[in-house]
Design a binder for these strands. Structure first.
Lengths: 187, 187
DNA sequence: GTTTCCCTACCTGTCGTTAGGCAGGCAAGA
DNA sequence: TCTTGCCTGCCTAACGACAGGTAGGGAAAC
């Protein structure tokens, strides 16, 4: 086990960043949460930019694994598409948190370059997975998979953002349902 | 005219907030931009929360006027729906800025209550206008206007967020086009 | 004996905010 | 008409809190 503390920092930083953004990350608060001192974090991460990039990277790696596992388990692409918004929904349920990527897209102009890149990685992972599953489900023509995938990803992100501003998960559910009835998401 | 400076502060604060959020607003930077000293801002706004709320309020008032003017001018609801994403597009063109409401939805947990309220006002204005125009256009049944309006608003916000994270307005255009082909937006 | 991990102590910079003052305009009272 | 005094709009100077980051040491593990 390469340092349990490092993992604990990553997890705590992720939770904080999903609630308060990269700018809301504070070495002092983070250290207090983990149970060490602020300066000690530098042993694990050379700078805040480093930490931010590591958090973002781990974030999309986790989601990528989760999405792949979902597909492997059911192997039913239509069912996967139904379940897809669930990952976003869970963030809202867990303390009205936002997708880290959405937060970082908003903060985009303030982010170190390395963090920007990793934040984009999350979107890329989601779009690639969606495109694949959409085509598998026969919902779109293969050449339209990417465009539709991006549309779904952006729309679901927007739904999460809207629901967060009302602190109301039901708003999220209603929006997803509207996406289905309007044809953006397969019904 | 009641103080030109106050208006200048509001305008500068809006631009900054659309790029760096409420948290990115700094009395010192703002003052420097306007040409006065930081402490002088307190003559116009009692606190940062006051300033933030005033900026957000002015923001949705301006947009409301703009949308109503658009509708009054063309009086063609279908054309209005075509033009609607333009307001979001213009923010991106203007320095890759975000809708203030989206930014504040992301920052939601860090905002003073008064600012939260005004940020929601923007969404309310947009949704109400969209619902009205959608029904006028005959795109949805009257009882479905609100739900579809929210879906469009959320989706367009998400598209802006995605495009911003790529610093690429063309991504926004492509997403809007996908919304049209998928049926979320009237084609 | 070097590496790992965490510590104390402190640096510089920025934040929102406050106290208090100064100059000009404007209006009422002598 | 001249004075008195308040209001407006801005200033300088400083406050305490907190930010990210650094230097250097101490203890334990290999």
């Amino acid at each position: 086990m390469s340092s349990n503390v490092k993992e604990t920092i990553l997890a705590a930083a992720r939770k904080t960043a999903q609630a308060h953004g990269y700018g809301g990350l504070s070495y002092r608060d983070l250290a207090a949460e983990v149970g060490i001192k602020a300066a000690s974090i530098y042993h694990h991460f050379a700078s805040k930019a480093d930490l931010g990039a590591a958090v973002a990277r781990r974030y999309w790696e986790d989601i990528a694994a989760e999405l792949d596992a979902m597909l492997a388990e059911t192997s039913d692409p239509v069912q996967c598409l139904r379940l897809y918004p669930g990952t976003f929904r869970r963030s809202l349920e867990d303390g009205n948190r936002l997708c880290l990527c959405s937060f970082m897209s908003a903060e985009y102009a303030n982010l170190p370059e390395a963090v920007q890149r990793e934040a984009q990685g999350f979107a890329d992972v989601n779009v690639a997975w969606l495109a694949k599953v959409l085509v598998m489900a026969g919902a779109v023509k293969p050449e339209d998979g990417g465009a539709r995938a991006r549309a779904i990803f952006a729309a679901v992100s927007g739904a999460q953002l809207y629901a967060r501003s009302r602190s109301d998960v039901a708003q999220f559910d209603a929006l997803i349902e509207s996406y289905r009835t309007s044809g953006l998401l397969p019904a």
